[in-house]
């Protein structure tokens, strides 16, 4: 089965089984997202890709497109809610962009520019999240984690190592690594793992490559994420 649905008033074709986000992308329409990745099944946790279908909020990464759906995405209402979700993510962790090695390559930061987030609005939580520098090649800075679980999924489903998992729950949820010591250095993690190269923010960093590309010349510094994401559709989330 294939057909068309209306995306912000414009017809978009879809193939059977395609989600709203996938079909919209294929037709050249960008929907903001953080936890979704073209190489993985939908996760549905960040809620940035939320759209309205027939007046109801749905995750566009997870819901299959259907004939005749009326989807609202790039509207002041939806972008306002997306901005608020970003603000939540910013106050939940410790995100100090000016001193972050990921600045300019960070999807959270890029989304904040994309959605014109000019302040954090809410009170910062300032959680205490110690870093893990035990691995010879990789540094883990949990302060920036947004719980997209891409590292969890990549390590489990592609690398076959299950180096990462989430523990605790609610606002206390956090990443753990697969070692009794709790140290990345005691796992079989390698800098070549997909999980070492998939973090959309600045949690999983390669050592000894700091600021190799100057800030100002990085991926999202000059081209907005909505353009990068659509330009490299196959590989880039």
């Amino acid at each position: 089965m294939s057909g068309h649905f209306m995306f912000d008033g414009r017809p978009v074709p879809f193939e059977a089984g395609q989600t709203i986000l996938e079909a919209a992308r294929a037709a050249g329409h960008y929907i903001p997202h953080l936890c979704w990745h073209p190489d993985f099944p939908p996760h549905g946790s960040c809620k940035l890709c939320m759209v309205k279908v027939g007046g109801r909020h749905v995750s566009s990464c997870a819901l299959e497109a259907k004939e005749g759906m009326e989807v609202e995405s790039n509207t002041p209402e939806m972008n306002g809610e997306r901005r608020a979700l970003l603000q939540m993510l910013f106050v939940e962790g410790n995100h100090f962009c000016p001193s972050c090695e990921k600045s300019g390559n960070c999807q959270l930061q890029a989304q904040a520019y994309e959605l014109e987030m000019t302040s954090a609005r809410f009170d910062h939580f300032f959680p205490v999240r110690p870093v893990d520098a035990s691995h010879p090649d990789i540094l883990l800075d949990f302060n920036r984690c947004i719980f997209c679980e891409l590292c969890v999924r990549a390590s489990r489903d592609v690398d076959g190592k299950s180096v990462f998992a989430l523990t605790n729950r609610g606002i206390h949820k956090h990443l753990v690594v697969n070692a009794e010591s709790g140290q990345l250095g005691d796992t079989d993690f390698s800098a070549d793992d997909l999980a070492a190269n998939i973090c959309p923010v600045g949690v999983i960093l390669h050592k000894r490559v700091g600021f190799e590309v100057p800030i100002g010349e990085r991926t999202y510094d000059e081209v907005p994420i909505s353009v990068v994401s659509m330009r490299d559709k196959g590989s880039k989330p």
Binding site: S45, K47, L48, L89, V91, F147, L166, G170, H172
Partner: peptide, 11 residues
């Protein structure tokens, strides 16, 4: 009791 999976409920 929030499980913490999604952004809006967790935060």
């Amino acid at each position: 009791e929030s499980c913490g999976f999604c952004t809006p409920c967790r935060i």
